[in-house]
Design a protein around this nucleic acid. Structure first.
Lengths: 151, 151
DNA sequence: TTGAATTAGTTGCATAACTAACTATATGTC
DNA sequence: GACATATAGTTAGTTATGCAACTAATTCAA
């Protein structure tokens, strides 16, 4: 009966190895070709800071689906690049607020444009409806795996 | 007009950070809970060898969407675990054929069952039609990014 | 108010990814 | 046959991931 839904391992290997990393690799390549020396992982952090600056590392982890240790090291590298700084929170001394520097500003429009270009290359001939379904399925997969089991 | 198709970065962050890694993490966790000491990356190589044994590293790279260097080290680690061996090809001395050992045999059914279980957890309440659309979109994204541009 | 439990962040360890440079073998062409 | 080119695999260097153990600060509760 499981085989009614998917051939063994097939969907898994599709999900894990193919389209998603192809998109990531293309975006990384487009960054490099444009002379940008940041990784897509670093970009994903900057992306959330451009939406809302001065987030805690914890909050950045939640928004980018990473654990604390990964965020610690991503912020280390972004600090080395001079794109963010850690500022101690005044209300909770455990917390670092991650703040964009002036050096990060010029990257915003450039990386948005490259991300859009990459999405256009990736989503050529794919309809809005299909994209909505994919996004919706992904959200539900994520919810299936992260919400507590109520059964 | 790009915003007609997707909100900036939104689909990207969905694809890159969320559902796919949640599935991978869950499968890894299910392996660990079952006492299996292999990574999902190692499993993805074994998976293809169970379908067809004695593949070259090159061919394994193609089938698992990895580059040569990644395959070299995955095979290194699988050899250390005693699950595969490298056998020099008799017809082309550049080629290593990667061969399953007897130690890998008992893992096949067990990991298939765990992968199926993981897929059931992930795909709860997601219809066959939606799964087909996701698979189809992924294939077309991959094709968009890997086939030569004919425009 | 003191002691337990929780939360934020860091560090060590192992695995894995990509790029680029490298060796060795094979192939194709003059 | 000899040289250029292509292919298979390895290695070095950098970045990233997950887990577990750890410190420091905060909160909760008796």
């Amino acid at each position: 009966m499981s085989n009614n839904q998917f051939k063994r391992g097939e969907l898994y290997s599709v999900i894990n190895g193919m389209a998603t990393t192809a998109v990531a690799r293309r975006l990384q390549k487009n960054f490099r070709n444009a002379g940008l020396e940041i990784t897509i992982e670093q970009w994903s952090v900057l992306y959330h800071l451009w939406k809302e600056d001065e987030l805690s590392q914890q909050e950045l982890g939640t928004r980018t689906f990473r654990d604390k240790a990964s965020i610690t090291r991503l912020i280390d590298n972004l600090e080395k690049l001079g794109l963010v700084i850690r500022v101690a929170s005044k209300t909770d001394r455990r917390v670092n607020l991650v703040c964009l520097t002036d050096a990060a500003k010029p990257l915003q429009q450039m990386t948005y444009d490259l991300a859009n270009q990459t999405m256009h290359e990736s989503l050529k001939n794919i309809s809005k409806e299909e994209i909505e379904i994919v996004k919706n399925v992904f959200q539900r997969v994520y919810d299936n795996l992260t919400s507590p089991d109520l059964s």
